[in-house]
Write a protein that binds this DNA or RNA. Sequence first.
DNA 1: ATTCCCCTACCTGTCGTTAGGCAGAAGAGA
DNA 2: TCTCTTCTGCCTAACGACAGGTAGGGGAAT
Lengths: 187, 187
Amino acid sequence: MSSNAKETILAAARKTAQAHGYGGLSYRDLAAEVGIKAASIYHHFASKADLGAAVARRYWEDIAAELDAMLADTGDPLECLRLYPTTFRRSLEDGNRLCLCSFMSAEYANLPEAVQREAQGFADVNVAWLAKVLVMAGAVKPEDGEARARAIFAAVSGAQLYARSRSDVSEFDALIATYRASGLLPA
Amino acid sequence: MSSNAKETILAAARKTAQAHGYGGLSYRDLAAEVGIKAASIYHHFASKADLGAAVARRYWEDIAAELDAMLADTGDPLECLRLYPTTFRRSLEDGNRLCLCSFMSAEYANLPEAVQREAQGFADVNVAWLAKVLVMAGAVKPEDGEARARAIFAAVSGAQLYARSRSDVSEFDALIATYRASGLLPA
DNA sequence: ATTCCCCTACCTGTCGTTAGGCAGAAGAGA
DNA sequence: TCTCTTCTGCCTAACGACAGGTAGGGGAAT
């Protein structure tokens, strides 16, 4: 396992947390999945709070890189806005999982402070990127970018939550389509 | 405590579940809050799954009655649509709590089947009522009522989730305002 | 010789749940 | 009216499972 054990743990913890939340993370289950013993995880993460914060941080770092790459690749802000919901869609397709940030927002009251902060980071990254892309696309007035970005992020999160409770990705697609038809998302 | 002990348990469980989820429900804590012993709860609810299902069921029954009363009182569908988000707003004001259905949608993978079903009932009640009121108000074409209702429900849920993660009710208000400005909600 | 990574063994606490009992109210029969 | 029985609502005590976390050691690599 060697030095990438830490990365393996992070990846496994992320997948579990997206399905069962921070509360659903268990050192024993996690260790079994990775192929080591529960106590050994403490060599990499000093506490569950540390692990949770690391998972959440890595989560928004990854998404930030992915979103920036999308903009760089297409060079087309309108196309980016069309593609944006697919990130959330993929979680649903991958075992009906939720955005980690949404799960942690629900669990908010049970989370250590450090984990709360990192979970908010994900939302911040999404909102900042959306605001930028919305303005680039000329979809909103520059002064309305932030507010619209927050609305889109919240609405897409809600759509994912609803679709998950039905175990039906097509519900997500239908909701996004309605967001477009109603004007929340650019057509 | 006598015969209303059951109701007292239901009410306490609902409040706890809206703050900490189904997983955060504990027979011991609940009993302490109600003023009896943990084992005594089994006299009223045969298992935690039973309790969870009863709480969720009562939750959507209450909201169904509340929404119907709102429509009957005002007699004005547009006013109803304006008031709709206040139900979610109240949870946030009351200790930054979440809609029980949203919490349970997040916890979906950990829930007993009976609880899953009752949680979906809440969404169904909301969507049905919204669809009816939207069509009454002439805000959408009759054939688009259901889809738009789902979109509004999902978006408002997402707004509540986002505001909770910031412990800031004004974030919720701002999101609803943006939903209106963008056309998702009737102005 | 030290550091890194992982181990066994065990701690305390909490969980849902069960077995069995006890006091009081309620209803029935004399 | 007085007993006898049954039911209701709650209790104490304990079970096995699992949680996060700790102490201390072993073996391999530097």
